[in-house]
Amino acid sequence: MKMYDKAVRDGIPDIIRAEGKRCVVEQVSDDEFLGYMESKLFEELNEYTETKSAEELADLLEVIYRVAELRQTGRDELEMIRKKKSETRGGFKENLILVSAEE
Rank of each mutant, 00 (worst) to 15 (best):
residue 13 P to A: 01
residue 83 K to N: 03
residue 75 R to V: 11
residue 17 R to W: 04
residue 38 E to K: 12
residue 31 D to W: 03
residue 76 D to L: 13
residue 29 S to K: 03
residue 99 V to T: 04
residue 18 A to E: 09
residue 55 E to P: 01
residue 47 E to Y: 00
residue 97 I to Y: 15
residue 95 N to I: 03
residue 95 N to G: 08
residue 38 E to Q: 15
residue 3 M to K: 12
residue 65 Y to G: 08
residue 15 I to M: 08
residue 52 K to I: 02
residue 74 G to C: 02
residue 53 S to L: 05
residue 100 S to F: 13
residue 82 R to L: 07
residue 7 A to C: 08
residue 27 Q to L: 10
residue 36 Y to P: 09
residue 21 K to E: 08
residue 81 I to D: 06
residue 62 E to L: 13
residue 75 R to M: 05
residue 76 D to T: 14
residue 30 D to Q: 05
residue 12 I to V: 14
residue 35 G to E: 06
residue 18 A to W: 00
residue 75 R to F: 14
residue 68 A to Q: 09
residue 72 Q to E: 01
residue 32 E to Y: 09
residue 24 V to M: 10
residue 89 R to C: 13
residue 56 E to Q: 07
residue 71 R to W: 00
residue 28 V to W: 07
residue 67 V to Y: 06
residue 78 L to Q: 04
residue 52 K to S: 14
residue 40 K to Y: 05
residue 80 M to L: 14
residue 92 F to M: 13
residue 97 I to W: 08
residue 35 G to T: 09
residue 72 Q to K: 15
residue 79 E to C: 11
residue 97 I to C: 10
residue 81 I to V: 15
residue 63 V to E: 02
residue 40 K to Q: 04
residue 75 R to Q: 11
residue 100 S to L: 10
residue 51 T to D: 07
residue 42 F to D: 04
residue 56 E to M: 01
residue 58 A to V: 10
residue 94 E to T: 10
residue 15 I to Q: 10
residue 77 E to D: 15
residue 41 L to I: 00
residue 40 K to S: 02
residue 6 K to E: 13
residue 85 K to Q: 07
residue 75 R to K: 12
residue 52 K to F: 10
residue 99 V to G: 11
residue 67 V to D: 00
residue 102 E to A: 04
residue 29 S to G: 02
residue 7 A to I: 05
residue 10 D to N: 07
residue 31 D to C: 04
residue 22 R to G: 11
residue 23 C to G: 00
residue 89 R to S: 13
residue 91 G to D: 07
residue 30 D to V: 11
residue 90 G to K: 06
residue 11 G to I: 04
residue 16 I to E: 01
residue 86 S to K: 14
residue 58 A to Y: 12
residue 64 I to D: 02
residue 59 D to S: 03
residue 76 D to Y: 13
residue 60 L to T: 06
residue 67 V to F: 00
residue 36 Y to R: 12
residue 58 A to S: 14
residue 92 F to A: 13
residue 86 S to I: 09
residue 84 K to R: 15
residue 68 A to D: 06
residue 25 V to E: 07
residue 19 E to M: 14
residue 42 F to K: 08
residue 72 Q to Y: 09
residue 96 L to G: 07
residue 67 V to A: 05
residue 103 E to Q: 08
residue 23 C to T: 02
residue 40 K to D: 00
residue 16 I to M: 04
residue 102 E to L: 09
residue 17 R to N: 12
residue 78 L to S: 04
residue 45 L to E: 02
residue 42 F to G: 09
residue 13 P to L: 03
residue 80 M to I: 08
residue 83 K to E: 11
residue 48 Y to A: 03
residue 86 S to T: 15
residue 8 V to P: 08
residue 14 D to R: 10
residue 82 R to E: 02
residue 93 K to R: 14
residue 54 A to E: 15
residue 2 K to T: 11
residue 39 S to C: 12
residue 13 P to I: 00
residue 96 L to H: 11
residue 51 T to E: 02
